[in-house]
C-alpha cells in the first residue's frame, strides 16, 4: 500500500503533505495526553503490521491495521500513523520520505472516517461490536485503496484501471483486516475497555 519514492507527481506530493500536516495538527490538538500510552501501542502495532504481507499477482499487499487505529484513536490516528510511516521509511525502506505525506493521508484519513462512521457502535453489544470493527477494518483498507488509486490517477491518468487493480489486490486484505480488527476490538472491549476513546463533549 506504500507509494514508493518518486512515483507521484509534485503537486500530489505537496497536496498530500499539506493534508497530512493539517490532519496531524488536528490530531495533536485532539489527542488525550493522559492516554498517550494507547497512542504509542497503536502506532507500534501499525508500524509492525506491514511486515506481515501477502504476495498477490505482480504486487504485494500487507496488513495495515489503520481501521483499529482509527477506531481507538480518532483524529490522533494522523500523528500515530505519520510517526509509524516515517519509521517504516527510515528503518525498512518502505515507501519513501517524499511520499510520506501522501501515504499518511491514504492510510490515516480512512481511519478517521471509520472512527466517525462506526466508532460509536462498539460497546452496544457483542454482535454490534464485531460487525462495527469488521466494517472499520475492511472499510478503512477499501478507502485507503481508493485513496491510493486517486493519488496514482494524477500521475497515471487511468483511475478506473488503477483503482480496480488496487481494490482487487486488497480485497483479501480487506477481509483479513476486517476479521483481525473484529476479534481484536471484541477482545479489547472485554479485557481492556479503557483503551476505547472517551466519547462525549469535544474538548
Amino acid at each position: 500500500m506504500h507509494i514508493s519514492e518518486g512515483v507521484v507527481s509534485g503537486p500530489v506530493m505537496m497536496a498530500g503533505a499539506a493534508l497530512a500536516f493539517a490532519g496531524t495538527a488536528v490530531g495533536l490538538k485532539k489527542i488525550d495526553y493522559e492516554r498517550m500510552v494507547h497512542v504509542a501501542i497503536l502506532s507500534s502495532a501499525f508500524f509492525v503490521a506491514s511486515l506481515i504481507h501477502v504476495n498477490l499477482g505482480p504486487s504485494s499487499v500487507h496488513l495495515i491495521l489503520n481501521g483499529i487505529v482509527g477506531l481507538l484513536l480518532g483524529w490522533a490516528a494522523f500523528p500515530a500513523i505519520l510517526t509509524a510511516l516515517l519509521l517504516q521509511a527510515i528503518l525498512f525502506q518502505y515507501g519513501g520520505i517524499t511520499a510520506l505525506g501522501v501515504n499518511t493521508v491514504i492510510m490515516a484519513l480512512p481511519a478517521v472516517i471509520c472512527y466517525y462512521l462506526v466508532g460509536p457502535l462498539p460497546g452496544r453489544g457483542p454482535r454490534y461490536t464485531f460487525v462495527a470493527a469488521f466494517l472499520a477494518g475492511a472499510g478503512s483498507v477499501g478507502l485507503a485503496a481508493l485513496g491510493l488509486g486517486s493519488a496514482l490517477y494524477f500521475t497515471e491518468k487511468n483511475f478506473l484501471e488503477v483503482s480496480m487493480l488496487v481494490m482487487t489486490a486488497n480485497l483479501p486484505v480487506m477481509i483479513i483486516e476486517g476479521i483481525v480488527t473484529g476479534f481484536c476490538v471484541t477482545f479489547l472491549l472485554k479485557v481492556y475497555p479503557e483503551i476505547f476513546p472517551r466519547r462525549g463533549p469535544e474538548k
Binding site: I41, S44, V48, L51, I52, H53, E194
Partner: peptide, 28 residues
C-alpha cells in the same frame, strides 16, 4: 475484571503472534 492487566499486553501478544506466523518479511 482484574484491573492490573497490562495495557499493551494484549496488543503486544497479538503483534508477536502475527510476527511469528509471518511467512516473510517484505514490502520494500
Amino acid at each position: 475484571q482484574k484491573k492490573d492487566l497490562l495495557p499493551g499486553g494484549t496488543l503486544l501478544a497479538l503483534i508477536l503472534i502475527l510476527l511469528g506466523s509471518s511467512p516473510a518479511w517484505a514490502h520494500k
